[in-house]
Each structure stands twice: as structure tokens, then as C-alpha cells.
Design a protein around this nucleic acid. Structure first.
Length: 603
DNA sequence: AATTGCT
């Protein structure tokens, strides 16, 4: 009998095997190739289903959690488990023997500093208006509901606990693509549900697959690797992934620098299916031979354009191409970012095999929900100007808490200096940048999120991916040199359906950005000051070509005539291998706001 | 020239 990795774990704990009784199967789950894993999957862990040969492809063993007419799970379903009290009460029955007690990630949810989460009154129809574009061979069609996707009973319960009612556009498209085993390059704004989009299929795939036993002890053999460019972002992804994999038996471990390595090593030794990591620490672990990538089946790069830019590219190449990771085609690779410059796409195609390109219209960010302002401010006037903005913001408080303001500066020294100056002048400010200890970084972020210090001065360490609810105002005290960085920065506000404000201080030093900034603002229907247009007209065009960026934030470089010789630019023309997934060409900018408000856990 | 990313 073949012995899978998980079998070795589950054999003792799961003596009963799959449920023997067949159960009611709702119509939408009938005749599906694979189905909810048996209840024991929650305990038995990955590949419990793979062990259940009778269950594979046999509709009648589909989990019986569906309660007839009510589209809800029965909380009292006992299915052989030791959880009689329903999903919220861990009874700690016999199934937990020999297993580490899994902390319930849903109980320590960050309490909302201001406002409250609402999961009702959401206009999900607004999703239909979000433009989505796919290209590549045989693109699997999108799904409309989580039930259509059928990720398995345990994951379905976690979806419910997350209060995700309906998949977001990027999830509707990504999940079927990923479940079909296809490689993917996805352009989607942060806040669009990317993390869940790649975590769900990975978790589901690990639960259903059969994998060989790890060949060596004391070495971790993850099945999935998720890389991100900052420690805080890796932590955030890890926290999300823990929620999605709760009680599935899938183990998620995070590894990043600045934290004691020993604890991370202990976690790794206890077994890992999904490793979330920053590049530096992972390279260290690989060189110490404490992690092997030879069993990797899934590779996901978040903020992929950053991961492949000059600073990170060597490390990423080392991890992906020069260690023991299986090549493209053997592993499944998924790249995500809100921005995907053409050069980076070209680089990235090294890592991909016959991939699908997916671009989802900007959601709840730079175009619609954020009001962008640019003000001409000399270097010497920046501080007093900022003070004016902060004073104005101070009156704009909710529930007695000052609205959160995120101030981006270009240098670490500049961040220290500005924080100091703000504090000296009585502003409740803190700062985050790469020269701070990890403890200081995490403390600063926490203190900002909770509203204790509602002003955060940050370098680009905080520009990408971080989900900080209730940021009312992003100030580009120093503008970045790259328009894509600007897009990522202002994306920290206007989240979760709230409107946001982004103010930039512009002067001669930013001339090179004038053109692309003015173009971007124009695309977003923002008021472009006349002086900025003059700057833009004057400057020789050195910025990025944002063609196609207005509606999609990206475009498949394979469609470019320079790449695809002989082919005319059939962008939008519905060529043979193209599949435009949106019905209405109009980019709905007004109604999405409500839809974005489900929960802040969207990315 | 600057920002991330192992001790």
C-alpha cells in the first residue's frame, strides 16, 4: 500500500477512514470530479482524501454538511469527528491526541479600532462591472460562487468564518485557473483578495494530493512556497493562510529575518506544508540545509514585480533556479502584483510554463475611491505644509480617535528625522523603516493600526501589500521615483470601501515623475493642476509607459507586437487565444465601494 | 541614490 507523507501522520489518528454512510448531496455538488474531504480531513491532514480511493470521483461520499434547503452547514454534524459542539467549540476530543493543539485564528481577530465591520448590504452586483482580461491557452472559465469551486468542507467552513460571502473578481478567475494546475501571472490591485485567491487552491491541492514522505528527518520539505518582499507582508500572508487552513491539517510556517531563527527552525521541524518567507531568511535556511525545496509543487510570488526587480532578482533566481526546486511545468507557479512592467514580465516568463495572464480592474483603489492631490511644495516648506495637513486631519476624527495618516518619505534617515520633528511638535507619530529592529517595526505598525499613534512615517517598506484598515490619508512627503511605487503607496488608503485621500508634495526634484503622475491622475479622473501639466509637457519622457494601465493596471506583454512578431496589436480584439471575461466595457467606478467593505482580510 | 531582503 502506498504510504503518503500525511498517511504517516494520520494513520494513527484516523483509524476510521472515510465515512461509510453516503449522504445527501445537494444538486450543485453532484457529479463533481472531487469533493469535500471526509470529516477526518480536518484532523488527518493533507491527503486524507487521497487515501480514500473510493471517495475520489464518487459523488456519494461528498461530505454531508449541507443541510437540505438551508444553504448552511450543520453545526452538529459529527461525521466521525470529536467536535460535537460545532465548529466554534473545540471539544478537544480523541482526535486531538498526539496532535499539537491548533490555535483558533478566528478568536484573536484584531478588534476594530474605529467603525465596525459590516457584511451586509453589499452590492455584489458591482463585481460584474469590474473589467477582467485574460489571455493564454484554454483559460478555464471563472466561477461565480465558492460553492461552484468546492474547495472541500474544511476550507468552506473557513471561508464562512472569514465572512467571505462571494468570491472577489480575482478569486473568481484565479481559483479555477489554479485548480486546473495552470501557471499564472495576475495583475490585481492589493485589496482585491489576492492572498485568498492563491491560498485556497494551494490548501485544497495539498489536502487532496498524495505526496511522498519527506526523505530526511530534521529537514523541512514544504510543498508550497509563498515569497514576499517584506517581513511584515510575509507575517500578514501567514496570518491569513492560517485562517484559511484552520483544521485542514495543512501546516503553515513563516520564516523571515530580524527574528530569532531558532523558533522558526523548531516550527519547521514540526512539519510544514506551506512555507511563507522573505528571500533572505529562506536563502539562509536553504544554505543551512534546514529547508529543501525539492518537494515544492506550488510557488507563489506576491508583489512579484518587486521580487524580480534589481534588488531582489539574484536572490529569487537562486531560490527558484539554483537550489533544488522542481522546474516550471513540474511545479505550479503563480505571480501576483498590482503592477507588472513589461521588462519584469519578460524576466518572469523564465519562471513560468504556458501561463495564463490575468488582469483585474483596479478595485477600491487608486482610480475611484482615492482622491489624489498634488501640491507644489519646496523642500524647505514640506514640514510646515505637513503640519497644516495634520491639523486639518486632527479635526477629522471618528469615535474620538484621530484618523490615520501614513506619511511616506524616501530615506530611512528622513523617516527618523521627520518622526522626531513631529513628536517634538506634539504630534503622535511613530516610524517604520529597515534600520529599525524587527521589534520596533512591529510595535510601530501595531501602534499605528490601533490608533495609539495615528501618524506613521514610513519608507517604502510599508508601501506594498500591507493591509492597514482605516488609513484616511496617505501623504507622499517625498515622491518616489517610480510611478508604480506611487500606485502601491496610495493603495494603502481607500481600502475596505472607505474613501481615501492621497496628497503628494511635488517640486523640481520630482520632474522625472511629472509625466507619468499626470497621466495616471488623468486616467483616474483626478484634477491635474495646470502647473503639473506644464512640468509634464516640459520633461523629456523618461517615465514608464502606462498604456493599458488605466483600466487594468497591466497588460500581457506577449500581446506586444515587438514580442509577438507579425501579430498586429490585437488588444481587445478577441483573438483566438484571448478571452475577455467582462460583459460591460464600462469600468464601474461608483458602486464598488460598498462591495469592498466585506472585511479587511482581502489581501 | 534609495528602498527592501540571512547573522
Amino acid at each position: 500500500m502506498p504510504m503518503s507523507w500525511a498517511d504517516s501522520v494520520s494513520a494513527v489518528e484516523n483509524p476510521a477512514g472515510a465515512p461509510s454512510k453516503s449522504a445527501y448531496v445537494p444538486p450543485h455538488l453532484r457529479n463533481r470530479p472531487s469533493a469535500d474531504p471526509p470529516a477526518q480531513a480536518s484532523y488527518a491532514g493533507p491527503s486524507a482524501l487521497g487515501n480514500d480511493h473510493s471517495g475520489y470521483g464518487v459523488p456519494n461520499v461528498v461530505g454531508s454538511r449541507w443541510s437540505g434547503q438551508r444553504n448552511e452547514y450543520q453545526s452538529d454534524y459529527a461525521g466521525g469527528g470529536g467536535r460535537g459542539g460545532g465548529w466554534n467549540g473545540r471539544s478537544g476530543g480523541g482526535w486531538d491526541r498526539g496532535r499539537d493543539r491548533e490555535v483558533n485564528p478566528f478568536t484573536d481577530d484584531d478588534s476594530e479600532p474605529v467603525g465596525e465591520q459590516e457584511s451586509s448590504g453589499i452590492n455584489f452586483d458591482a463585481y460584474e462591472d469590474i473589467p477582467v482580461e485574460t489571455s493564454g491557452d484554454n483559460v478555464p472559465p471563472p466561477v461565480n460562487t465558492f460553492a461552484d469551486i468546492d474547495l472541500g468542507q474544511a476550507v468552506n467552513e473557513n471561508i464562512r468564518r472569514c465572512k467571505y460571502v462571494k468570491p472577489t473578481p480575482v478569486q473568481r478567475h484565479t481559483i479555477p485557473i489554479s485548480l486546473a494546475g495552470r501557471d499564472l501571472m495576475a495583475c490585481a490591485q492589493t485589496g482585491s483578495g489576492k492572498t485568498a485567491a492563491f491560498c485556497f487552491p494551494i490548501i485544497s491541492g495539498i489536502m487532496r494530493g498524495q505526496f511522498p514522505r519527506p526523505p530526511r528527518p530534521r529537514v523541512a520539505f514544504p510543498l508550497a512556497l509563498i515569497l514576499s518582499p517584506t517581513r511584515e507582508l510575509s507575517c500578514q500572508i501567514h496570518d491569513e493562510a492560517k485562517k484559511f487552513s484552520y483544521q485542514t491539517g495543512v501546516k503553515v510556517v513563516v520564516a523571515y529575518g530580524g527574528a530569532p531563527i531558532n523558533q522558526q527552525l523548531r516550527e519547521l521541524e514540526r512539519g510544514v506544508h506551506i512555507l511563507v518567507a522573505t528571500p533572505g531568511r529562506l536563502v539562509d535556511l536553504l544554505e543551512r540545509a534546514r529547508v529543501s525545496l525539492q518537494m515544492i509543487r506550488y510557488l507563489a510570488l506576491d508583489e512579484a514585480d518587486r521580487m524580480l526587480d534589481m534588488g531582489f532578482e539574484p536572490q529569487i533566481r537562486k531560490i527558484v533556479q539554483q537550489m533544488d526546486m522542481p522546474p516550471p511545468g513540474v511545479r505550479q507557479t503563480m505571480l501576483f502584483s498590482a503592477t507588472f512592467p513589461k521588462e519584469i514580465q519578460r524576466l518572469a516568463s523564465d519562471f513560468l510554463s504556458n501561463y495564463i495572464f490575468l488582469a483585474v480592474g483596479r478595485v477600491g483603489s487608486s482610480t475611484d475611491l482615492i482622491v489624489q492631490r498634488v501640491e507644489y511644495v519646496q523642500e524647505t516648506d514640506k514640514r510646515s505644509h505637513l503640519m497644516d495637513l495634520l491639523h486639518a486631519q486632527r479635526d477629522n476624527s471618528v469615535n474620538g480617535k484621530q484618523a490615520l495618516t501614513l506619511v511616506f518619505v524616501e530615506t530611512k534617515k528622513g523617516a527618523d528625522a521627520l518622526e522626531h520633528w513631529l513628536c517634538m511638535n506634539g504630534f503622535p507619530a511613530t516610524a517604520i523603516h529597515g534600520d529599525r529592529t524587527q521589534q520596533e517595526r512591529e510595535y510601530a505598525l501595531r501602534s499605528f493600526k490601533t490608533g495609539n499613534t495615528p501618524i506613521l512615517v514610513a519608507t517604502d517598506v510599508a508601501a506594498r501589500g500591507l493591509d492597514i484598515p482605516h488609513v484616511a490619508h496617505v501623504v507622499n512627503f517625498d515622491l518616489p521615483n517610480d510611478i508604480d511605487d506611487y500606485v502601491h503607496r496610495i493603495g494603502r488608503t481607500g481600502r475596505a470601501g472607505k474613501t481615501g485621500l492621497a496628497t503628494a508634495f511635488f517640486n523640481e526634484n520630482n520632474s522625472s515623475l511629472a509625466r507619468s503622475l499626470s497621466d495616471l491622475m488623468q486616467e483616474a479622473n483626478q484634477e491635474v493642476p495646470a502647473w503639473l501639466s506644464r512640468f509634464a509637457a516640459r520633461s523629456t519622457y523618461g517615465g514608464k509607459n502606462r498604456r493599458g494601465g488605466g483600466r487594468f493596471g497591466g497588460r500581457d506583454f506577449r500581446r506586444d507586437s515587438s514580442y509577438n512578431r507579425g501579430a498586429t496589436d490585437y488588444y481587445g480584439g478577441g483573438g483566438a487565444n484571448m478571452n475577455s471575461g467582462y460583459a460591460s466595457g464600462g469600468y464601474n467606478t461608483s458602486s464598488y465601494g460598498a462591495a469592498a467593505g466585506v472585511t479587511s482580510a482581502w489581501d
